[in-house]
Design a protein around this nucleic acid. Structure first.
Lengths: 231, 231
DNA sequence: ATAAATCGTACGTAATTCGCAAAACGTGCT
DNA sequence: AGCACGTTTTGCGAATTACGTACGATTTAT
């Protein structure tokens, strides 16, 4: 489907975040290295060549801004900042320094991937216009650009959570997705929500699928493991 | 779609600006090289041939004026100056020296592109007659040259901001555009304004669409993600 | 100087999310 | 077959969040 996979360097000291990010990146076919401090980041950056840097603003020792400044003195590779929420001021500072985009925690996989794609696109080539990001399975098409899910009977009206949930299931159509994975995909990391809550949303999702004229059994439950979208 | 893409050389030392400019240019189908100082600019300019120069006035070492003078001694290629806001005086100086146009920060994508097009048109043949820059969707046509939006019930009177907003939405008709993207497209600078402000302008836009006899629901809101122009 | 346009804040309303608790279901065992 | 146990479904109300709208302050254009 693609050419050479993009290489991404992730710099963050919180393991829960790096795990989440690198997991998401890998799943989308990106290559990523992870380090937890600025010094190692600089060392790696000069050894290997990356297509994108993802930096947390808060880092032990050299902070994200400083790191960005140093990276920028050598290269023109795009930078995506991560930061704790509600730090409005940081936005301006980060972008002035040369960060290309900014993502406030908590963020979800889809949002992260979208930004990463956008930044990589900016750098080189870009994907073709009309390369719509859509998934189709069992006569349902989920269009990520338009944020719609539809089939022969028309559109299925979904709330954000339901949409993310369906997206995660359909991306893995035919495979079981655990409640934990669903939480990760549709909610984002560090969301201390009960895995039980997934069940509730699955119900609402099935309800809407049914009332839109489709088969609610498209979302199969795999007892003891999770859910699966019928392939 | 087009013949040979125009080549543009961007000279600015602020990465956030060069990113923004080259991104905007690429999106419109132009080719751009970026350098952050006058010396490199001269070197590149004598090696390659460009159709337009975009110069920041404030540059480390040789400033934009000086650079313009030197470029002008060799070629007749048009020059577009960029400068920090509120530097009214620069305008005169820049244009006297041989700059062909002038753009004060902060500027928006569309404004930038408009000037670039105008300058390129001046220089060579101009873009083909009839290559009108118009977008049509759902029976509304937005003419970027004339700066008008109209349909079967006549014209929709819009303020500049509303026009940019509608343009951004219509360019992505059928796709959701986030408030952040709208800010970037219609305002030009990311993060300098509140995303909530977008809502206000959307309302005003819908009001005008409605009072002009069209359906305000053409601008759909996609809860949790942004807005979408009905395809 | 006057009018137009822009921007942000405040607040009401409606949509969405969440998790408990009870009911329904599936499974294995006797 | 019937029972017991764990799992999933479902209903429902409370808390949260997003959106629309109004309004006033500020900036910009004429």
């Amino acid at each position: 489907m693609n050419e050479t996979p993009h290489r991404i360097l992730v710099v963050d000291d919180e393991p829960s975040i790096t795990e989440f990010v690198s997991y998401a990146l890998k799943k989308e076919g990106f290559f990523s290295d992870v380090v937890d401090n600025g010094e190692d980041a600089l060392a790696l950056a000069s050894k290997n060549s990356y297509d994108l840097f993802i930096l947390d603003i808060m880092l032990p020792g050299m902070d994200g801004y400083e790191l960005c400044r140093r990276l920028r003195s050598k290269t023109t590779v795009p930078v995506l900042f991560l930061s704790a929420r509600d730090t409005e001021l940081d936005k301006v500072v980060g972008l002035e320094i040369g960060g290309d985009d900014y993502l406030a925690k908590p963020f979800g996989v889809r949002e992260l991937i979208a930004r990463v794609r956008a930044l990589l696109r900016r750098g080189s080539g870009g994907d073709f216009p009309g390369a719509s990001h859509a998934i189709t399975a069992s006569n349902i098409t989920l269009d990520e650009d338009a944020h719609t899910a539809s089939g022969e009977h028309g559109e299925i009206e979904l709330t954000p959570r339901e949409f993310e949930l369906l997206a995660s299931l359909m991306k893995n159509a035919g495979k079981v997705v655990s409640r934990e994975d669903l939480l990760r995909d549709a909610w984002g990391w560090e969301y201390l929500t009960e895995t039980k809550t997934v069940d509730t949303h699955i119900k609402r999702l099935r309800d809407k699928i049914e009332s839109a004229g489709y088969d609610p059994a498209l979302v199969e439950t795999v007892r003891g493991y999770g859910y699966r979208f019928k392939a």
